[in-house]
Computed example of a mutant assay.
Amino acid sequence: MQIHLDQKDARIIGQDLLEYAETLSEALGMDTFRIQEEMQSGDLNHLIITFNYYFGEYIELLDSDHRIGS
């Protein structure tokens, strides 16, 4: 699955990724609270890298048809 992100508004990207992380972690039986806490422990780049660490196998983040946060 691919998710296209509009990088014009970092706040929206962060919130969207936290929501995706909640849904995915619950479906995969992961510790949702710990993952979201880790995602929020840095800046937007950290949030994206952390999301990719946990969910990159299932989700490809794209911006203008290019992979981001790898």
Rank of each mutant, 00 (worst) to 15 (best):
Y20S: 00
N45V: 10
H4N: 11
D43H: 13
N45G: 14
N45T: 11
E57F: 04
Y58S: 01
D63Q: 08
D6K: 07
M30S: 10
I12T: 12
L18N: 11
I49K: 15
E37G: 01
Q2H: 14
R67P: 12
E37K: 11
L5C: 12
Q40C: 14
Y58H: 13
A21F: 13
L18F: 15
F51M: 03
D16K: 15
D63W: 08
H4W: 00
S70P: 10
I59A: 01
D63H: 13
Q2I: 13
E37L: 07
I59L: 03
Y20Q: 08
A27E: 12
S70E: 09
F51A: 03
G14Y: 03
Q40G: 11
F33R: 08
G42L: 07
Q2G: 13
L44A: 06
I68L: 07
G29M: 07
K8H: 12
K8P: 00
D9T: 11
D63C: 10
A27N: 14
L24E: 04
G42A: 07
R67F: 01
N52I: 00
G14E: 14
F55N: 12
D31I: 00
Q15I: 12
L44C: 07
I35Y: 05
D31F: 00
D63L: 01
I48D: 01
G42Y: 08
H4D: 01
G29S: 08
M1V: 11
D9W: 12
M30R: 12
H66T: 15
Q2E: 15
S64H: 11
E22T: 09
N52T: 00
F33H: 07
Y58E: 00
L18D: 11
E26F: 09
M30Q: 14
L47H: 10
Q15H: 12
M39Y: 05
G69P: 03
N45C: 09
Q40K: 15
H66A: 12
H46M: 10
G56A: 08
Q40I: 03
T50R: 01
D31T: 00
M39K: 08
Y53S: 05
Q15S: 13
I35A: 09
D16C: 07
E26V: 06
H4M: 02
N52M: 00
Y58A: 02
Q40H: 06
D9F: 13
S41L: 01
L28K: 14
E38N: 05
L24F: 04
M30G: 04
L18V: 06
F51V: 01
F55C: 10
L24Q: 01
M30N: 12
L24N: 03
R67S: 05
I13P: 02
T32A: 06
L28M: 15
G56V: 07
G42Q: 11
Y20G: 00
Q15N: 10
R67D: 00
T23I: 12
I12E: 06
M39L: 05
Q7R: 15
L44H: 06
F33C: 01
Y54W: 15
I13W: 10
I59Y: 02
H46V: 09
E38P: 00
E19T: 05
G29N: 09
L5R: 03
A27F: 10
R67K: 15
L5H: 07
L24W: 01
L18I: 11
I13N: 09
E26I: 04
S70Y: 08
T23R: 14
L24H: 04
A27C: 04
I68N: 04
